[in-house]
């Protein structure tokens, strides 16, 4: 589903503040895999995710998504496959727009946003039903600006938004970093359920080793722009949280 071949990224090349964020790195992720990426700050996790999403381009090599060469395709051209959950809960939604408007846009992620009014009664009902299933009591607030909700509520809604339209790949960059423990757990469980229900290919970046141990089918440790460890499904199941801690020893 995702194939990264010899990708690398150097920021500010040739300047005094040059940073080598990713070395020559290759990675293949199959359909339905749920990859967890851990690694210390600055190890290149977000850069890797951004390259899959298309917000930055690789200096070398190729990016293939769902069989298509997407190396030079910008982020808005990759939305036909990819939905994203940002680290900052405020980035994933448009604050001044109502919950409904946000969901309307999400429902058109892979399609044209045309000059017709698509927010009809049946759409509104569909959104209310989906939100009700979340069990956060937000279904009566769909006309409110989404900016009036808490970070955890917004993050949970962003997750729901990602499956409003056809979705193959879900990218989650520390989706719970800004949330309290209870909201964080709720969001992670919702994400896990959606990934299973829709059989999504997913990449989760996290610093929470408990989540890294509990979720996903494969775990990758990054360091200094390289893949240090890559533990496939069978072994990951046996991996204990304590062993993960040792990786960072």
């Amino acid at each position: 589903m995702i194939e990264l071949k010899d990708i690398s990224k150097t920021f500010n090349a040739g300047k005094p503040n040059e940073v080598k964020a990713l070395g020559k790195l290759s990675l293949e992720i199959k359909q339905g895999e749920f990859v967890v990426i851990v690694g210390s700050n600055g190890s290149g996790k977000t850069t890797l995710l951004n390259m899959v999403a298309g917000t930055i381009f690789t200096d070398t090599g190729t990016v293939t998504i769902d069989g298509n060469n997407a190396t030079k395709l910008p982020d808005y051209g990759r939305s036909k496959w990819i939905a994203r959950i940002f680290q900052n809960p405020l980035s994933g939604t448009a604050a001044d727009l109502s919950i409904l408007d946000n969901f309307r846009l999400a429902a058109l992620r892979t399609q044209n946003k045309g000059l017709t009014i698509g927010k009809n009664e049946s759409f509104k009902q569909l959104v209310r039903d989906k939100i009700a299933a979340l069990g956060m009591g937000l279904e009566d607030k769909t006309e409110q600006p989404i900016g009036t909700l808490s970070g955890g509520q917004r993050q949970a809604l962003t997750l729901l938004m990602s499956v409003m339209d056809e979705c193959k790949i879900l990218l989650l960059d520390e989706p719970t970093a800004a949330l309290d423990p209870r909201s964080a757990e709720k969001v992670m469980r919702t994400a896990d359920e959606l990934i299973k229900q829709y059989n999504l290919t997913a990449i989760l970046v996290t610093h929470n080793l408990k989540d890294a141990a509990n979720y996903g089918t494969r775990i990758i440790q990054m360091g200094e722009g390289q893949i240090l460890k890559d533990i496939p499904s069978a072994e990951k199941a046996k991996l204990k949280q304590a062993e993960l801690f040792e990786w960072f020893g």
Binding site: A53, T55, P74, D75, Y76, G77, S79, K80, I82, A83, R84, F86, L90, S91, G92, T93, A94, A95, D96, L97, D101, N102, R104, L105, A106, L108, R109, T110, Q111, K113, G114, L115, T116, I117, G118, K119
Partner: peptide, 29 residues
Amino acid sequence: GYLLKTDFGIAMRATGNSEPMIRALGVNT
């Protein structure tokens, strides 16, 4: 008013609000 109510109009309003979000939703900002 009609324009702002359409799907295109919602995308316009979102562009000024959160650029990363609306790009991730397929809009060339």
